[in-house]
Design a binder for these strands. Structure first.
Length: 853
RNA sequence: GCGGGUGUGGCGAAAUGGUAUACGCGUCAGGUUUAGGACCUGAUGAGAGAAAUCUCGUGCGGGUUCAAAUCCCGCCAUCCGCACCA
């Protein structure tokens, strides 16, 4: 055994050992309980970053821990390999996206292996490989057959920088989720997945997601955005036309004083006399600044009271939600109120607060009253409570055949067409005679051609590829053209967790149709999913949708893919800023000054690591300097997983020092350790000196604490703190007798077992150096004995009137009476109580006595 | 505006009704070393005191309780998500 701990040497040795024995390969074994541990697969951007290190360290601890607990653990990894950066690299640097992607994958795979992650690489998936994306196409065809994939023309979100369409979920603060560029609306023919078909189920099942963070469930619910209301027809006066509006406040129907149409509403063009003015309203559509409108010159008839009210076209009315038209009740809706004030439209109060005088005349509004209340001036519905009236009025409208009660969702169908090259070709052919024809299943995959030109001018390389585009119709064999749009890359990641379940990465859903519940049935669903919260709606919602589609195809049983979800916090670091040179690297700062200009450097906020802010740590450097074990240990120790982690170079040193200390302890005692057998496992009573008996107790306490901390929402930071305490005891332990040595060996072995999920390489090495033959991976997780763990003596805190006055040592397990007696007899207690009468004595077993006087 | 999280030593954090600050970092002192580094030992919430001790202390203000970082009510700060959704 070496005197010095050399992480590079140790880690490479054990990585080789694991790889050579293919020790992480997983096989279906129905006799064992499975555990599916999954981390979000990375986009192969070139190198892993600290966010990956943290994510994958967390996942690896869980996988290794569960394995030691006897589960048949599946722990796969793969590559989210289609996407824009590859194509941009092709345009900028002339490297083919495939080459760029596969080279990145090769490098990043090495990096992951260097971290010592326990992946079964035989299950690796790469989404840009035809073997994988073939199944994107297959799912597309199945969905097309069932009407779940369809084509329509609509106004879509267009990112001018990425030169492609974005789904609603991919627009963040009216910008592109990838590059922040302001998104514009563009009318295009697009393919959609009918996710709204599952809206109700996706929403209801939210309540079953007990293992998900509440925050994420809430975001999903809000995104689906269910609202119940009434659709009602307002006839257009002197015209054969109706305007269908949607409202959640049917109780305010009598207060409607005008109607507003979305600028893109089909009737807007017809009704608007002034086309120029309409154009202006259209330009300001959906902009969150000022409300503007245009009077059409036409009137609508309120179905409740046959009043004629003006029809406006307003920029704030969205075509995408409800019916694209609203009734405006300025007294009870703030937006309508503002609009009415601006265009001097009447404001009619129909709801009054409860307990107020029901006199509208002396009630001046300076804002809309949006709360529930009592109806007034609403014919026979007056004096009803608004929640009751809402239903009654809706029923009435329904009965008259002027509308119906409906449920609306904010969720829109998922637009999946992308006008880019590096993605899955949509398996559709357009025939001059037959129209839209799906590619026959047996002709899949439609291969993405590699010999295309990357011009960067915005037209898709696929559309320019004659060889790809020109084809023959599968139906009539006539001249036809291929669809040249590719699929959104979120399609790829919506089912990859199911792909891993096929042995050796051989994906075949066809065979699954006849043999439900074999591999997929055994492994699905994912027991623990770990990733960033940034996918709270995007990827997680799409995956829930896909899982339902696949379930409905009869391929799997569960409709929810992820039983437990852990959203880890961000990795953050202090930022440094020079007033002249902007963000600075740590090495650009000397004595709080910028090395370029000498100006005082501002120590900025602790922010998420990002290249642009120059506050990143390169995992390669870190691992070269300290090794994977230290890197993993620090990122697990510095904060609980769900919270943001603040990077600290000194903290990393501390983690490294801890591992060094363990190495030192084993090294120092190596000879004695090797000749001592660990016999404490079976025997509780050895002749250990009093001094030494503390160690087995501490060890059992540590097993208990580490196990409970891991089980209690993976609180690795406190688990590691417990290990540090054990090491502190171990390093001051000085064995005297033969049995002392046995206690020492037991503790040291237990320490390594408990440490192994966190820092596996050093654990293996020291485990071996103590004379153990089998890998630590094949060991069972230790269990504790409550009898050994419990203290013989406890410290009793004596409080008087709730304040700590004394602490005494007493034997554990005394009765309340005895504890009371001891506390009252304590001199300090006597002194304070004096002649005062006792009011009451509270006893907390094993901890504390509170004497009230 | 609505919803959610967070707020505890010099710093990362621990404690989910019962000793506030475990564990780590930093700092200080001592040891070791030719020196530096590394390592080892000890101290380390604030204030007062020679000391024993005492007082204060978990963002702020109230409340419940024998007992509150923890439960309740009302604020403040900060971060995140959603946002003209009718």
């Amino acid at each position: 055994m070496e005197e010095r701990y050399d992480p590079q040497k140790v880690e490479l040795k054990w990585q080789k050992y694991w790889a050579e024995r293919n020790i992480f390969k997983t096989e279906q074994d129905s006799s064992k309980k499975k555990f599916y541990c999954l981390e979000m697969f990375p986009y192969p951007s070139g190198k892993i970053h600290m966010g990956h290190v943290r994510n994958y360290a967390i996942g690896d601890v869980i996988a290794r821990y569960k394995r030691m607990r006897g589960f048949n653990v599946i722990h796969p990894m793969g590559w989210d390999a289609f996407g824009m950066p590859a194509e941009n690299a092709a345009i900028k640097e002339g490297i083919h996206p495939a080459k760029w992607t596969y080279e990145n994958i090769a490098y990043m795979k090495k990096q992951l292996d260097r971290m010592g992650l326990s992946y079964d690489w035989d299950r690796e998936v790469t989404t840009c490989s035809p073997d994988y994306y073939k199944w994107n196409q297959w799912f597309f065809l199945k969905m097309y057959e069932k009407g779940l994939a369809y084509r329509k023309s609509s106004f879509v979100n267009w990112c001018p920088s990425c030169m492609t369409v974005l789904a609603n979920e991919q627009v963040i603060d009216s910008g592109c989720w990838r590059c922040d560029t302001a998104v514009i609306k563009k009318e295009l023919e697009q393919w959609f997945f009918r996710i709204t078909h599952y809206a109700e189920d996706l929403l209801n099942a939210c309540d079953e997601l007990k293992g998900w963070p509440e925050k994420v469930v809430l975001m999903q619910k809000n995104w689906i955005g269910k609202s119940e209301g009434l659709e009602a027809d307002f006839k257009v006066a002197e015209m054969d036309a109706r305007i269908r509006i949607f409202t959640t406040r049917a109780d305010t129907l009598f207060g409607a004083t005008f109607v507003c149409l979305a600028p893109t509403h089909p009737l807007s063009e017809k009704l608007a006399a002034d086309k120029e003015a309409l154009k202006k309203v259209k330009e300001r559509y959906g902009k969150e600044d000022e409300k503007i409108g245009l009077f059409t010159g036409r009137y609508a008839v309120n179905p409740a009271n046959d009043e004629k009210i003006p029809i406006y076209i307003a920029n704030f009315v969205l075509m995408e939600y409800g019916t694209g038209a609203i009734m405006s009740v300025p007294a009870h809706d703030q937006r309508d109120f503002e609009f009415a004030k601006k265009y001097e439209l009447p404001i009619k109060i129909v709801i009054m607060p409860e307990n107020s005088e029901l006199q509208t005349s002396n009630f001046e509004l300076n804002a809309a009253f949006e709360d529930e209340g009592i109806l007034v001036d609403s014919s026979s519905y007056s004096r009803l409570r608004s929640d009751v009236a809402r239903i009654e009025i809706a029923k009435h409208i329904e009965k008259k055949g002027l509308g119906k009660r409906v449920i609306n969702y904010k969720l829109r169908d998922w637009g999946i067409s992308r006008q880019r090259y590096w993605g899955t070709p949509i398996p559709i052919i357009y025939c001059e005679k037959c129209g839209v024809v799906p590619v026959p299943e047996q002709e899949l995959p439609v291969i993405l051609p590699e010999d295309v030109k990357f011009t960067g001018t915005g037209s898709s390389p696929l559309a320019d590829s004659e060889k790809f585009v020109n084809t023959s119709c599968p139906k009539c064999n006539g001249k036809a053209r291929r669809e040249t749009d590719t699929m959104d890359t979120f399609v790829d990641s919506s089912w990859y967790f199911i792909a891993y379940c096929f042995d050796n990465g051989k994906i075949d859903f066809n065979s699954q149709l006849s043999t439900l519940n074999s591999q997929l049935g055994y492994w699905m669903p994912v027991d623990q999913y770990i990733g960033g919260v940034e996918h709270a709606v995007l990827h997680l919602l799409y995956s829930r949708f896909f899982t339902r589609v696949i379930k409905d195809l009869g391929i799997i049983n569960p409709s929810e893919p992820f039983t437990n979800l852990l959203t880890q916090g961000m990795v953050c670091k202090e930022t440094l800023k020079c007033p002249e040179h902007g963000w600075l690297l740590p090495e650009d700062v000397k004595d709080e000054k910028c090395v370029k200009c000498g100006k005082a450097v501002e120590r900025g906020r602790v922010e998420k690591m990002s290249k642009s802010k120059k506050n990143v740590i390169d995992p390669d450097h870190l691992i070269n300097k300290y090794g994977a074990d230290t890197s993993r240990l620090f990122s697990l120790f510095a904060a609980p997983p769900e919270r943001d982690l603040e990077w600290s170079d000194q903290g990393v040193e501390g983690a490294h020092r801890f591992l060094n200390r363990i190495w030192g302890i084993v090294y120092k005692n190596r000879n004695a350790l090797c000749v001592t057998r660990n016999e404490l496992k079976n025997k509780n009573s050895l002749r250990i000196t009093d001094y030494a008996s503390c160690l087995p107790r501490k060890t059992h306490q540590t097993i208990k604490r580490v196990t409970n901390d891991i089980e209690r929402e993976y609180h690795f930071n406190t688990a590691i703190a417990a290990l540090m305490e054990l090491v502190n005891d171990l390093s001051s332990f000085d064995p005297k007798t033969q049995d002392d040595w046995k206690a020492f060996r037991f503790s040291a072995e237990t320490l390594l077992l408990l440490l192994s999920p966190f820092s596996p390489h050093i654990s293996e090495e020291l485990w071996e150096s103590m004379g153990n033959k089998k890998s630590i991976l094949e060991q069972k997780w230790p269990s504790w004995d409550e009898n050994i763990a419990k203290e013989e003596e406890i410290e009793l805190v004596i409080q008087i009137n709730g304040k700590v006055k004394a602490k005494i040592m007493i034997p554990a397990g005394l009765s309340d009476d005895e504890v009371r007696k001891k506390a009252l007899n304590e001199p300090k207690t006597q002194e304070i109580i004096g002649k005062k009468a006792l009011k009451k004595v509270f006893i907390v077993k094993g901890k504390l006595v509170n004497i009230v006087i």
